[in-house]
Structure formats: structure tokens, C-alpha cells
Simulated scan of single mutants.
Amino acid sequence: MAIPNQLPNTEVVLLEVEILLTIIFVGAWGGFVSYFIGKEKAQQSDAHISISNCLKQVVISCFTSFLLSALAIEKGFSFNMVLLAAGLGGVFAAPILKILGDKIKKYIIDASLRE
């Protein structure tokens, strides 16, 4: 499986389905890891709430891993590095989204002050 580079005339990156599913799976696995790391800190007795929190973490981790892997593909990294970015995006989803949110807030505030 090779990740094709961008086409010369467009901004489209074509991904094979296997690559996309692998990225999503690695992100989901990172979400499980992140959930189990955080679960040791906060014990919950209700199984329904625990499963719900786990699924929420997996969805957020898949989103963040997709963002980081898209960035890695854009930078022209190898397939292994794209998977590494997807895994790190899955495990460290909350801090990455917090940093990204802070940068966007700063950009919006700076843009509003210039007007």
C-alpha cells in the first residue's frame, strides 16, 4: 500500500480504502488506550456510563487521528509515519484538540483586533 502524492493540477489526495480503514483503526485503538489510561484515575461503577465514555473517547480519537494523518500525508511522510501520527492522534486527542482550539481562538482574537 502506497500513499499517492497529490495530483499536479488539483488539491485532491486519493486514498485507498485499506489505508483509510487502517488509519481509523489505529485512531480507535489509540482511543481505547487513552480511555484505559484515564480510567485508572477515575473509577466508575456504572457499566453503561463507562461504555458510553469509552465510545465517546474512541470517536474523538478517530477524528483527531484523521486530522493528524491528513497533515502527515500533506507533508509527504511515509506510510509508517502516517500510522504513527494516527496513533499519537488517537492517544493524545484531548491535548491536541485543546492546543488546536487555543491557536484558533488566538487567531480569531488577533484578526478581530486588527479590524
Results as ranks from 00 to 15, higher is better:
E18P: 00
E115A: 03
F25W: 06
S112M: 10
V12M: 02
V82C: 04
Q57Y: 01
A47M: 07
A85K: 08
H48L: 03
V58M: 11
F32D: 07
I108Q: 08
G31V: 10
D46A: 12
P4A: 10
I104L: 02
A28R: 13
I49M: 06
N53A: 14
Y107H: 06
A72K: 01
S61D: 03
E16K: 09
S112P: 06
P4K: 07
F92H: 10
I60E: 14
L100P: 03
L97H: 09
T64D: 09
F92G: 15
L113E: 06
V26H: 07
Q57T: 07
A72E: 14
G90E: 01
Q43C: 02
S61W: 12
F32K: 15
S69E: 04
F66P: 00
F77K: 01
D102L: 05
V26C: 07
A93S: 13
N5H: 12
P95C: 10
E40H: 09
G76C: 03
E40Q: 08
G90L: 03
G101P: 04
M81G: 11
A2F: 11
L83W: 00
F36A: 01
L14E: 06
E18T: 06
I49P: 08
G90A: 07
V33W: 00
L68N: 08
S34W: 13
S61N: 10
E40I: 01
G87H: 01
R114M: 04
W29R: 11
T64P: 05
S50H: 15
S50A: 07
P8A: 09
H48T: 13
C54T: 10
P95M: 13
K75Q: 03
N80S: 07
T64Y: 01
S34Y: 13
D46R: 13
S34P: 07
V12L: 02
S45D: 02
E115R: 13
L21R: 00
A86S: 13
G87P: 02
I108S: 02
L83Y: 00
Q44R: 14
K106W: 00
G87Q: 01
W29Q: 08
I60W: 03
N9L: 05
M1W: 15
I51W: 00
F66N: 00
L97W: 09
S61G: 04
G76N: 02
N53G: 14
G90V: 10
V26K: 09
S52N: 11
I19W: 00
L84N: 04
F77D: 14
G76D: 04
